[in-house]
């Protein structure tokens, strides 16, 4: 069958809508890249506070975690964008509001990853640090965190993808991300099948890029602590040679 490029067949529609969706994707990437450092910084601050000897610091960290984990991102976004101006009299830029809401939310999840990875570093490593007279900060920075980092990366990969997907909510506060663009296109009469398939593929592609970056970091981190680095791409599992039956000559 010949493909017609004049009639708006699926491919034709795709070619027409793609530039709009890519514009939206750029905004999605911007929000995600803005929210990532916010989330990462909060994850480390709250995660470290969660391991602190001070009850006060642990309490604040716990409060942050429970509050932001327990309320939906979309509600937080609405609150920051629509409700906060009533308190402060100042409306944030929608992209900035989205970055803050997504960052705060994913930072809360990230803090548990950081705390868990730090707690998983064997106690004798800490004790060796004391025996060598490292101070508490030196122990954390030179001994504990570099080892915890390896354990953090796979769950942080998950969270980074979660963060990317959470940015899809910024369309509700009038940010023209890929979701907002797709809505406009559908409302204009373009085939939802084509538009939404492209949106799926855009998110998938972005998630794969994230995974690739994280895999590279994971390999480097594993190498640093003397572990066999995980393969960048899934490798075919080598079959074990069959075990010879006892008495059988090979």
């Amino acid at each position: 069958m010949m493909l017609s490029f004049t009639a708006p067949g699926p491919l034709g529609t795709a070619a027409e809508v793609l530039p709009y969706l890519l514009d939206g994707a750029v905004v999605t990437v911007k929000v995600a890249l803005g929210a990532t450092p916010v989330a990462l910084a909060l994850a480390f601050i709250a995660g470290l506070a969660g391991c602190s000897g001070s009850r006060w610091a642990r309490g604040v960290s716990r409060g942050y975690l429970e509050f932001f984990r327990g309320t939906a991102v979309i509600v937080q976004m609405y609150w920051i964008f629509y409700a906060m101006p009533a308190l402060t009299g100042y409306r944030l830029d929608p992209v900035f509001a989205g970055v803050i809401a997504v960052g705060l939310n994913l930072g809360a999840y990230g803090s548990e990853v950081v705390r868990g990875a730090i707690a998983a570093v064997p106690v004798p490593q800490r004790e060796a640090g004391i025996a060598l007279n490292f101070g508490p900060v030196q122990r954390m920075v030179r001994i504990i965190l570099p080892q915890a980092w390896v354990a953090m990366l796979p769950p942080l990969n998950n969270l980074w993808i979660e963060l990317l997907k959470a940015t899809s909510l910024v369309s509700v506060i009038s940010v023209a991300d890929v979701i907002a663009e797709s809505r406009t296109l559908r409302n204009t009469g373009y085939s939802p099948l084509v538009v939404m398939t492209l949106v799926l593929l855009i998110y998938l592609l972005l998630a794969l890029i994230i995974t690739l970056i994280m895999r590279m970091l994971e390999r480097r981190a594993a190498h640093r602590v003397g572990r066999e680095p995980p393969p960048l791409l899934p490798r075919r599992r080598r079959r074990r040679p069959p075990v010879p039956v006892r008495g059988e000559v090979a």
Binding site: P124, Q125, E127, A128, A131, L132, N133, I143, P146, Q147, R224, V225, G226
Partner: peptide, 15 residues
Amino acid sequence: RKIGMVFQQFNLFPN
């Protein structure tokens, strides 16, 4: 400062 210790499980830093 005056004291050093060698452990049963070595406890070298893997990083």
